[in-house]
């Protein structure tokens, strides 16, 4: 009988080779908006062609399959440590099969473990599930885009950002400008307002789990997401930073309570190759969404 090793492997394969349709749809919209014959449009055409080829061949969309993070929701009665071991094994097998490139380097000895398993790799978090299904969200996040992440501490006089949503807006515009095309624009932003330094960064990353076509339940944040998307696209950085209308594909914002003395704004930058998939196991039947 298949278990979490097999299901985990299929989850990785899908994430690595089959771009989520909500992301693809927004890339397509961006492509249609760019003027005919422009380099921006040609780049987005190549991206879409690559997405289709990867899906058909089951090969990684991008050779940098990034760092792997699993977010597990577990009903009562499951053994978290057993699932952790199974997911690690799935990662080992996925690496052998070429769904993942070995990306786990020891920072002091420079030695690569070769199988994508190491200290905090894959990153796995457990939370209790709301019902009796196991859900596992996976993100593969590339190094080039991870390097474009940023954290601001408000107030920040250099960009005239105060401790309010207008200040948050300034941080985000500044960060997208700094990133230019380096994170393989067009990008997707996960943003977290508040929290401590570490929690805030993780909160920002988790916003990347949201689908691009969802709507923030908080109307103020929903409005800020739309405003930021439109303003950042006015920067003109464009696909790959060649210039154009499509600098960002989406902006997702969450928040955490903060200490009275700290006001952090954390930004996780994800490239257009936003490889995330969800595994749901209900009554022993697994499905990758």
């Amino acid at each position: 009988m298949p278990g979490f090793v097999e299901w985990g492997l299929e989850l990785v394969r899908r994430a690595s080779s089959d771009l989520s349709p909500d992301v693809e749809a927004v890339v397509r919209r961006g492509r249609d908006a760019e003027p005919e014959g422009s380099t921006a449009r040609n780049v987005l055409d190549s991206i879409l062609e690559n997405v289709e080829m990867s899906r058909a061949d089951g090969t990684p969309i991008c050779q940098d399959t990034g760092l792997t993070s699993f977010f597990v929701h577990l009903p009562k009665g499951y053994d978290a440590e057993a699932i952790r071991a199974d997911l690690q094994e799935a990662i080992r097998q996925a690496t052998k099969l070429g769904y993942l490139r070995p990306n786990s380097v020891h920072p002091i000895t420079e030695k690569n473990t070769g199988d994508n398993v190491g200290v905090d790799l894959p990153h796995i978090e457990f939370e209790p599930a709301a019902d009796d299904a196991v859900t596992i969200d996976l993100i593969l996040k590339g190094g080039g885009s991870e390097n474009c992440g940023a954290q601001y501490r408000l107030p920040d006089a250099s960009i005239k950002a105060g401790r309010d949503l207008a200040g948050v807006e300034r941080c985000v515009i500044d960060a997208v400008h700094k990133a230019q095309g380096q994170g393989c624009a067009p990008g997707i932003l996960g943003i977290c307002i508040g929290g401590d330094r570490a929690g805030s960064y993780m909160g920002a990353k988790k916003q990347l789990l949201r689908h691009l076509d969802d709507v923030n339940p908080d109307p103020k944040l929903a409005e800020l997401e739309a405003t930021l998307l439109s303003k950042c696209n006015q920067l003109g950085i464009g696909p790959m930073g060649f210039g154009g209308l499509t600098t960002l594909l989406g902006v997702k914002i969450g928040w955490m309570h903060r200490h009275p003395a700290s006001f952090f704004v954390s930004i996780a930058y994800c490239c257009w190759a936003d490889r995330r998939r969800r595994l749901v196991v209900r009554d022993g039947v697994a499905q990758v969404l």
């Binding site: 780049v43 190549s46 991206i47 062609e49 690559n50 080829m53 990867s54 061949d57 090969t59 990684p60 969309i61 991008c62 050779q63 940098d64 590339g142 080039g144 230019q180 095309g181 380096q182 393989c184 790959m240 930073g241 060649f242 490239c271 257009w272 190759a273």
Partner: peptide, 30 residues
């Protein structure tokens, strides 16, 4: 991808060489 700085730019000028940018992320296509 992402371009390079002024030192490389000067090197390109001197040697008659070119920096080409490929589409980042287009792993299968390339």
């Amino acid at each position: 991808k992402g371009g390079m700085g002024e030192k490389t730019s000067a090197g390109l000028k001197k040697c008659g060489a070119v920096y080409f940018h490929a589409v980042g992320g287009a792993g299968t296509l390339l």
